[in-house]
Nucleic acid binder design. Structure first.
Lengths: 146, 146
DNA sequence: ACCTTATTGAGACATGGTATCAATAGATGT
DNA sequence: ACATCTATTGATACCATGTCTCAATAAGGT
């Protein structure tokens, strides 16, 4: 899952080009977010970061999460019990599926969402510039093991 | 906006049938949520409640919001800066549009979403039981006044 | 009108997230 | 390689949002 290829190198390169300093905390956190199978909260990312870099500060992690989000690298996942978890952003439109059983996230083909948006835009008269679609249920794996 | 008919009477009746006592706080809050053009946070609902019922407690409002949500009368709206606001739930599938300019919410025709879900279910192999779709942009009114 | 008990209000508490500021460590020029 | 400059960091104080406790209140059945 989270199968679409996410490349941490690209994120670091983008930070560099953006005029930001490339630091070890950033490398650590980017690596954590880019490789997690699950959506992560800032707190979880902090825990993960301290495993390889014990002195990492809490505020720093919150700041990095904010930066990564504002740069568009990660994006908030809206679950039932809140929206404090993040997944890597895809370049294209995103349709995210969350398994209510195992908690893992999966990106689905978003072509149908593009069509839906076009249609709704015409039907409603609103100008649609962004979307968040999340689907919940039981993933293919969890259905097998049930 | 929020044009689909929401009936506060039905909510109270449902509470009554559910074995809950029907109280003035409930009436006040249900009225507030059912008639707001905007998604409301618990804090905003508290402010609104105290206008007509000054002694209303904060915890009470949070409890009622939780109850109304668990009974399915209201539902969390997932915006950019958090997900602590609520709108009345529709009986059918929901497709919510939020105007990034005026902040108002609008329910769109959700037929296309039903189709999309069916399609994605087959394509992905996941069993989809719930969805959250939110669209953002400029509403018809705000486009005119721009 | 009375009794029972769910609901409420006040305030203490917990959690998640932000602001401050001195210390640290990237980047750049020498 | 070294010094310098300044963005970034870590520690901690702080704030906001939401939860818990418990005595007081008020629905609803009798």
């Amino acid at each position: 899952m989270l199968s679409k290829s996410i490349n941490p190198e690209d994120w670091l390169a983008a930070l560099d080009e953006g005029g930001f300093r490339v630091t070890t905390v950033q490398e650590t956190l980017i690596d954590i977010f880019a490789h997690s199978e699950y959506p992560l909260s800032a707190e979880q990312a902090w825990d993960a970061a301290r495993q390889s870099r014990p002195k990492t500060g809490r505020a720093t992690v919150y700041r990095m999460v904010e930066k990564l989000e504002s740069l568009g690298f990660i994006r908030r996942v809206h679950g039932y019990q809140g929206c404090s978890h993040f997944v890597p952003t895809l370049p294209e439109l995103m349709m995210l599926f969350i398994c209510l059983d195992c908690g893992r996230a999966d990106y689905l083909d978003s072509q149908p969402l593009g069509d839906l948006i076009q249609h709704s835009e015409h039907a409603s008269g609103h100008h649609i510039t962004d979307s968040r679609l999340q689907l919940f249920g039981a993933c293919a794996d969890c259905q097998q093991n049930a």
